[in-house]
Design a binder for these strands. Structure first.
Lengths: 189, 189
DNA sequence: GTCTATACGAAGATAGAC
DNA sequence: GTCTATCTTCGTATAGAC
């Protein structure tokens, strides 16, 4: 298949970004982990590492978006639960060795364009979450700030849980988040 | 002074960690930014970079702890405001180019001991925040999970704001956090 | 589309002089 | 306590053959 190697590299880069950060997602590591042939790097990614990372970010974005989209129409607390669960799965599936690729790029990027790509991912998530929360019963005036809270707290909780190697504090944060969203929905009936 | 150069290196490492991540806090960068002499690296830090980073983490921990300690005895919402303000200042003072050193280490460390050091910092913050929130009027059963929420959401909001290069979403998260803490305090009077 | 070889720089680390 | 020099490894990137 024409694009199989390429896609595998992007998936592997996304995983390495989440697990070991921007520096850990080196070409050597990506090749070793993906089994892709060394000679094909600049064939598939003529702009080098930044291009590979940018596509890994796009993949991470799409994954979360797709998962969230599956919960369109559900109540706001259920939407919140779905978003939080997405990150909980990342932690557990990786035995606390993985986090968020977008975060990894944001805190380690030395190139502006890459930070802007990361910001774009956060904006996309913010947009769909705001939409889903409003649809799910949260007053529209509050939906945006609750979406911001969900994203920020989830990302932060992933980091703390990773450092600890335990799910406890992530779950504590998750419960608080769902409660806040539920309370916001009850106000307007 | 015996320790002046050394302290300057640690402070610079903490700053570089926050600004450019673990990879950006290289010896060359630390030396260039601190003005410290190259020959003194392994004199002051015989265990190399990991030792320097570990001390930078300890510094970051102490700074937040000291700032929080100044608010002992205040109401829970004021404690929450103080913690959030601490991170807001980091963003604004750096023009959105700096975040949290502990986060940077957690998401990029390839050595376990360093991740454990990062976890220790989060635990310290968790401990004092839980204490201050309980003292400030939050039911003790809830203080710990609210402390976790404060830490996670603040760290996450810092990352998002950094990527965006704007304070808006950080402030939205901050407001939500203070409200949640305030509401938790009102329950028990 | 994939290969080998190679250039170039940066990073961590060590040795030994001063 | 600080200096210079050097070593090794690794990462990005390019050239040119197949």
């Amino acid at each position: 298949m024409v694009t199989e190697t390429r896609e595998k590299m992007v998936r592997t880069a996304a995983l390495l970004l989440a697990k070991r950060g921007l520096q850990g997602a080196s070409f050597s590591e990506v090749l070793a982990a993906s089994g892709a042939p060394r000679g094909s790097i600049y064939h598939h990614f003529p702009e080098g590492k930044d291009q590979l990372v940018a596509e890994a970010l796009a993949l991470a974005q799409a994954r979360a978006m797709d998962e969230l989209e599956r919960h369109r129409g559900e109540s706001a607390p259920d939407v919140a639960r779905a978003f939080v669960q997405l990150w909980r799965d990342v932690l557990l599936a990786s035995d606390f060795s993985a986090g968020c690729a977008v975060v990894a790029v944001t805190v380690a990027a030395d190139a502006e364009p890459l930070v802007e790509k990361a910001a774009a991912v956060f904006r996309e998530w913010q947009g769909i979450l705001t939409d889903l929360l409003a649809t799910g019963g949260v007053p529209s005036a509050r939906a945006a700030s609750l979406a911001s809270l969900l994203i920020a707290a989830s990302e932060g909780a992933v980091i703390v849980a990773r450092a600890e190697g335990a799910i406890d504090r992530f779950d504590a944060v998750a419960e608080e988040l769902v409660e806040v969203v539920a309370a916001a929905g009850e106000v307007s009936g």
